[in-house]
Structure formats: structure tokens, C-alpha cells
Computed example of a mutant assay.
Amino acid sequence: MSGNDIGSLIYLVLLGAVLMFWLVVQGRQGMGRTLQQMAAWALIFVGVIAAVGLWGDIRQTVAPRQSVIAEEGRIVLPRAPDGHYYATLQVNGTPTRFMVDTGATGTVLTLSDAERAGLSGDDLAFYSEALTANGTVRTAPVTLDEVALGPFTDRDVPAYVNEGEMGQSLLGMSYLQRFGRIEIAGDELVLERGT
């Protein structure tokens, strides 16, 4: 459990304790009515816990997903609720979620995504720098053995690993330029190239 999960659990337990105390204080109305109210609040409490626990699964079910139209050589990425486009690529055989950033020159991995793809943080040399909206950050140039998006597999793909805090890996133009056409139409980002 992460720190956020523990904090949420403590909050829910305290909320439940306050509600139980309130019900006991209100118990002067009669035991039957108090038991009904306790049962109703217990069900609400269990429902909230279930919703919090299942939120990740619910969000993935409801959220739009990327689609691959292999015979047409096309990848269609739906706009996410936050207004960005996301793609899941196989980096050295590991599924990695990227935010598509046409304003970024290079493709940049977070340190954790790089490590999951087999690039050890101990072996990375952070000697280059990148200018970002948040200032200058140190990066380590790397070459990814294999990157696959749908039916398209590329080898020896240049990228960078960000040394600092970064919430999401970025899919920049160094990779996107491999597509012959990049188009935003409606709420979709379309990437096309021959199969």
C-alpha cells in the first residue's frame, strides 16, 4: 500500500467512527430505528470503500483506448479526459505508457520506466541536459533495443532517460517522425505509415 492508500484508509476509518458515534448518540429514538440507520451507513461506508478500491479498474474500463488498424497501417489514439493523447508501446518487450508530445524533440523515459525496460539506473550517464517548461534537467542518452507500437517495430531507437522527477514518459518527435502522417481529427490523434 502506498502512502496515499494508507491516508485514504485512515480517513475512511475516522469517518466511519464519527458516523458510528453519531448513531449511538441518536440511539434515544429506539433501537430498531438506530439499527436501520447503522445498517444504511454501513452499506454506504462499504460502497465508498469498494468504489475507492476499484477506481483504477473502473477508470481503465471507461477510458478510451488506442486502436490499431493494422491493414491500413494506422494507429488511432483517443483524446484522454485531461486533453492529452497517450500511447502504450512495448519498450524492450515491456509495456510502457507514454504521453504523446509533438512539442518535444526527443523521446524521454522516466527513470522507473527505463528500469522496467532493462536500463539500469547505475549504468546511465546523466551528462546531457534538456530545457523543459520547468527548467533545465539532466538526461542520459540511451538506445532502446526495440520499440513496438501496434504492428510497427523499430530497433535501435534513440531516447533519453530523465534524471529528475517526471510523472509520465514522453513520446517525442524523434520517434513520431517515423510516421508518414500525424493528424489530429476531432478527438483522435492518427498516426499512419506503411506496414
Rank of each mutant, 00 (worst) to 15 (best):
F98C: 01
M173Y: 15
S67W: 09
L131P: 00
V100L: 06
A130V: 14
G118D: 00
L176A: 10
L119C: 00
N4T: 02
L109V: 01
D113P: 09
E192D: 11
D82W: 03
L176G: 10
S2T: 02
L170Y: 01
A63E: 12
D113E: 07
P64M: 09
S128R: 10
A159Q: 08
P141Q: 09
P158D: 08
I75Y: 03
T34Y: 06
R74T: 08
A117M: 08
A39T: 15
Q29M: 10
Q177R: 15
W55S: 11
S128A: 10
V25P: 03
A114Q: 07
A140M: 02
N92W: 03
P141N: 08
M31N: 10
M20F: 08
L124P: 05
L43E: 08
Q168E: 08
L124I: 04
S120M: 04
T61G: 11
T102L: 05
G83D: 02
G180I: 06
R97D: 02
T88V: 14
A117Q: 06
L77R: 06
E183F: 09
G186S: 00
P64Y: 05
D57I: 13
T105W: 00
E188N: 07
G83L: 07
D82H: 05
S120R: 09
W55K: 14
A17D: 06
M99Q: 01
T88C: 11
Q37L: 13
A51G: 06
Q177T: 12
D57Y: 14
R138M: 01
T139G: 00
I75R: 08
T153M: 12
V142L: 08
R138V: 02
V76S: 11
I10F: 13
R65K: 10
M173R: 14
A185P: 05
E146A: 14
P158G: 08
T88A: 13
D154Q: 13
Q177E: 12
Y175V: 15
F98I: 03
G172A: 07
F126R: 02
L119Q: 01
Q168W: 04
L170P: 02
F45V: 07
G106S: 11
G186C: 02
R178H: 14
G121P: 11
M1S: 06
D57L: 15
A39C: 13
E115D: 11
A140E: 02
G56Y: 11
L19P: 01
R74Q: 08
I69F: 07
L89W: 07
Q90H: 07
T139W: 02
G83C: 06
L170G: 00
L14I: 11
L189Q: 08
G194H: 13
T105R: 03
T143L: 10
T195W: 11
V142W: 07
V147R: 04
G73H: 07
N134G: 15
A70Q: 02
E129A: 00
V48A: 00
R79D: 04
L77V: 03
V46N: 01
G118E: 02
D122L: 12
A70K: 00
N4Y: 03
M20D: 04
A42T: 10
L171A: 12
A130L: 13
V62M: 07
R97Y: 03
G103Y: 04
H84Q: 01
R138S: 02
V157N: 05
V13A: 10
G150N: 01
A114V: 03
A51W: 14
R181F: 11
S174N: 14
T88R: 15
V142N: 08
A148L: 07
G83F: 06
I44A: 15
I182C: 09
